[in-house]
Design a binder for these strands. Structure first.
Length: 572
DNA sequence: GCCGTTTTCGGCCCGACTGTTTTCAGTCG
């Protein structure tokens, strides 16, 4: 592993600089430039070290490019070191508390000597805070509440958790009078892997009725704001939900605006400006005249663009592709003809193979791969070569009996620390499909980790690289992998990249998938189900694939059984 | 700090909501 910083680490440096500048009340546009750069870098699909000319990136000029080079060399950034000395380090954390921005934090610091979470806690409890101009009892009470929430719920929610709660709120709101359309927007609509707040847009005849209905939702723990067109609440679960009411002629514009992403919106807005148009959440305007806004299609059309699916709206080239009519025809759930990772009671799954196969058939699949663990996964009941052969014999028997579904004889094979395979090749040769997975030694360096998987793939026995990064969302960081080196070998050895559909994993993620597709790889979207319910997670894998610009043909389990089998055998 | 088919200087996205105010500051998205 080199000492240079990764993209997300560089993004974090720029975010920190922006925060400190904010606290120092520096030039807002300079601050915006740093934040914009941080966002760009965070979502950038390949390592910045491989970008020949950083200044070509939008929002990166000479100074930021130089700073990036410094960080890539593993050197410290003088700017940041200097700025850090100019403020109390504990103040940065306070900015994350709802209701506390740079101005208030600065006031607290200057007038009351607040320097971190602890001293802030004391300040809101004491009497002096109420003497500050503009600080009343209500504000202080609100800040106390946000402080409590910050300590309890500082993380974002997983996509599946947020989606279910949003759907419940939508159902409830449909009971309000005069509702015409209701649509969740925001990162949830873009199917991002984690969700901050849930945004729901509504249009109809009676805004007041909608707001009244919303704040009366039984699972509301607290109403944060209640206005004519916008209200916000916190649910019992801790998730914040915002509801906005829009007039029908503005609904498309509002939906677009609140779906984001922010960078996508800014890019489109900039384009609009060049055409003498102004975009807001109420529509697209030429002067005072609204020229579009009822639907999103209408807005994109105005700019000569095809409709851009929400999953693509991350400012990763979608506007240009829409303008030149080169957007991908994104994969859909109905394109899937099978599931390529599932576990049975032979190892750590809950159900017998027969039940899983029956459910797969109900889901409309033509095939399902049983991929129980290999022997190193002791805690999961991993199988030895002999036991694996017995499981496959059971599958042979089931396949002779079953109609309308084919069970593939698979294995989720551990890639050992040294890159060795966890079962003998002569056993693996009898499998229909072999998934290679990492389940331990997560902390190897980038070089060691990459060499490990490359050695495993060089055997030619692995068909799919399963949950490559091994990250668990909100729980475990991804391992270090050098995709620049790994992708060409996977392409040559015909190893597909898995998009693990479990909402805990979503691995590979959308950005990586987009990059790997560009390197010529194919993909498997698999649920990794350990129960019958788990088989239904496929939708989350499809969302992730769509965020990676994948089409049906890029995904091997959209193929018919015979085409898939041919691909699986071709390497022998 | 970035950027340029009106500019290498002078712009940079902006509206809603709350609280503490009598017209606005701060925060948020």
């Amino acid at each position: 592993m080199g000492k240079g910083l990764s993209n997300s680490e560089i993004a974090a440096v720029f975010s920190e600089i922006a925060d400190i500048l904010d606290l120092k009340n520096d030039n807002v546009f300079k601050i915006r430039a740093y934040r914009r750069a941080a966002q760009l870098i965070e979502g950038f699909e390949k390592p910045l070290s491989e970008v020949p000319d950083l200044e070509e990136l939008p929002g990166i000029g000479r100074e930021l490019a130089e700073k990036i080079w410094t960080l890539l060399k593993g050197e410290k950034l003088a700017t940041l070191e200097k700025l850090r000395k100019e403020i109390e380090p504990g103040l940065l954390e306070l900015l994350k508390i709802r209701g506390l921005g740079p101005k208030r934090v600065r006031t607290l610091n200057e007038k009351l000597g607040v320097k971190d979470l602890e001293s802030f806690k004391q300040a809101v409890a004491g009497p002096e805070i109420l003497e500050l101009p503009g600080w009343g009892q209500k504000l202080v009470d609100d800040l106390k509440k946000s402080l409590g929430e910050f300590q309890k719920y500082s993380q974002r929610s997983r996509l599946d958790v947020a989606k279910v709660q949003a759907e419940e709120v939508v159902e409830w709101l449909k009971g309000a009078q005069g509702i015409e359309r209701i649509e969740p927007a925001g990162s949830l609509r873009r199917r991002a892997e984690t969700i901050g707040d849930i945004d729901i847009l509504v249009t109809g005849k009676d805004a007041n009725a909608v707001m009244e209905k919303f704040v009366g939702y039984p699972k509301v723990r607290e109403v944060l704001s209640r206005g004519k067109t916008k209200s916000a609440v916190v649910l019992d679960s801790g998730i914040q939900v915002d509801v906005r009411f829009l007039e029908p002629e503005s609904f498309g514009a509002g939906l677009h605006y609140f779906t984001g992403s922010k960078t996508h919106n800014i890019a489109l807005r900039t384009l609009a400006k060049h055409k003498g148009l102004k975009i807001s959440e109420y529509g697209v305007f030429r002067g005072a005249k609204r020229v579009a806004g009822r639907s999103e299609e209408e807005i994109y059309k105005l700019f000569g663009m095809d409709f851009i699916a929400p999953e693509l709206r991350e400012d990763r080239g979608e506007l240009e592709a829409a303008r030149t009519h080169k957007l991908p025809k994104l994969i859909e759930l109905k394109d899937l003809k099978g599931d390529l990772q599932a576990h049975s009671e032979w190892t750590d799954g809950r159900n017998p193979i027969s039940e899983i196969a029956a459910r797969a058939k109900e889901l409309g699949y033509a095939y399902i791969a049983m991929t129980d663990h290999s022997k190193s996964q002791r805690q999961a009941g991993g199988l030895s070569g002999g036991e694996m052969l017995k499981e496959w014999a059971e599958i042979d028997g089931l396949n002779r009996k079953l109609k309308g579904i084919t069970i593939l004889k698979g294995v989720e094979l551990d890639i050992l620390k040294d890159g060795g395979l966890d079962l003998p090749e002569k056993v693996l040769r009898q499998a229909d499909i072999v998934l290679g997975s990492i389940h331990g030694n997560f902390n190897l360096s980038r070089a060691e980790q990459s060499a490990r998987v490359l050695k495993a793939f060089s055997t030619g026995r692995v068909h799919v690289f399963a949950h490559p990064s091994t990250r668990l969302i909100g729980e475990r960081e991804p391992i270090e992998l050098d995709w620049e080196k790994i992708a060409p070998v996977m392409a040559k050895m015909k190893v597909a990249a898995e998009i693990n559909a479990s909402p805990h994993r979503l691995d590979v993620n959308g950005e990586t998938a987009k990059y790997l597709k560009e390197q010529g790889l194919v993909f498997a979207i698999s649920t990794d189900a350990h129960s019958l319910v788990g088989l239904q997670d496929m939708e989350y894998g499809v969302y992730t694939a769509r965020r990676g610009w994948l089409e049906a043909q890029d995904v091997i389990n959209t193929w018919g059984l015979s085409k898939l089998q041919k691909w699986l055998r071709e390497r022998r």
